[in-house]
Simulated scan of single mutants.
Amino acid sequence: MIRGLAASLALCLWPLMLAAQPVDPAQAARAAAKALEAAAVDLSKADSARDRVKALTITLKAYEDGLEAMRDGLRRVALREARLTQDLHSREAEVARLLGVLQSIGAAPAPVAMLHPDGPTGTARAGMLLADVTPALNTKAAELRVKLEEVKTLRTLQESAADTLRRGLDGVQKARADLSQALADRTNLPKRFTEDPVKTAILISSTETLEGFASGLYDITEDEAAGSLPDISHRKGELPLPVQGRVLLRADESDAAGIARPGVVLATRPRALVTTPTAATIRYLGPLLDYGNVMILEPQAGLLFVLAGLDTVYGHAGEVLPSGSPVGLMGGADAGPGTILSQAGDGAGTQASETLYIEVRQDNATVDPAVWFKMKKEE
């Protein structure tokens, strides 16, 4: 079952891979619609999956990828339709002349079209001229017909996109709700320690910085299992980012207020799913300082991944999560089909209005997250 869902996820990623290459906008939009249909099928199968959390996580990511591809496909469609329309408008006079010539040729009876006032010689010359001109006229007419058909196809796609988007948004909302329930029902995760709530409350109330809180994390646990976590240093620079988004600020880059932090800031879409990039222990989850909801993960001894700015967090302190496990959702609200279509019509994607802050701490010192996470150079 999980293997089948993974295959469907690969299908859903196909439109995104196409987006990196020159591709027909209509083809991209249709592929994205099929990706959303595949995600809907996966959602119906997830209830019977042995590992329901994993199945729903894959399904939710498939929906997110499909919707992202749909947004991008619609943007491409809108831009292509605008360019074609502008081109046709700029050539109105040329098109009118072409249509006039074609209509004149088509309206004249064949014998009359072959006669010339200057007699047989003129008729022969006119015939040779017509033989030279006709293919060019036919080519221009065919080119015009192709462009008009493409405009018609693109407009039809835009008109039918609202229903596709509505179904996709309904599906992603149901997948989130089902995932939240499946996570609440999950009881089979191993635990490395038990959190002392009193000590945690004291640490939160007495700390003023993220550094101070992180340094006190190991003092708020009870019955911690002995033994070290596996070393993942061989994966430096290769870990996937925990959420679909783009790098807004890199480590030590100043924001609009002139504040620089040692972590990176990712711009994400509302309600985006956040997952752990590798197997890790939950060291802390919940509100902290002015960071909103925070998830602190420990993938290996002495290494902490701090994810700050989530709206919803999943799990319990001390649990050991498999790689790719959901740890929370970003805030905000999904844009409706009308908003997505309107923004696509303006040639823009829907806004990545939420931000996730990622800080990496190793041996209680900050490390540039780019050392561990795979980030595109152009980002």
Rank of each mutant, 00 (worst) to 15 (best):
L11K: 13
L16Y: 09
A19P: 00
Q21C: 06
Q21N: 05
P22E: 01
A29P: 02
R30C: 02
A35S: 13
A35V: 05
L36K: 03
S48R: 15
V53T: 14
A55I: 11
I58K: 06
L60C: 13
E64R: 02
M70H: 10
A82H: 09
S90H: 01
S104K: 03
G106T: 02
A110M: 10
V112M: 08
V112I: 14
M114A: 15
P117E: 00
D118K: 06
D118Q: 05
T121L: 14
T123F: 03
G127E: 09
P135I: 08
K140W: 06
A141I: 00
R145I: 06
K147T: 09
K147I: 00
R167G: 01
D170R: 02
A175M: 06
R176T: 04
A177T: 07
A182R: 03
L189V: 12
L189G: 13
F193H: 01
V198W: 01
A201S: 13
L203T: 04
A214I: 03
A214D: 07
S215I: 00
Y218K: 10
E224Y: 03
H234A: 15
G237P: 13
V243E: 10
V247H: 01
A251S: 15
E253H: 03
V274K: 00
V274R: 00
R283D: 05
R283Q: 12
P287L: 01
L289N: 12
D290W: 06
G292D: 13
L297Q: 09
V306Y: 09
Y314P: 11
H316L: 11
S325K: 04
P326Y: 02
G336W: 00
G345F: 01
G347W: 03
E354S: 08
E359S: 10
D363S: 15
T366Q: 06
P369I: 04
V371K: 09
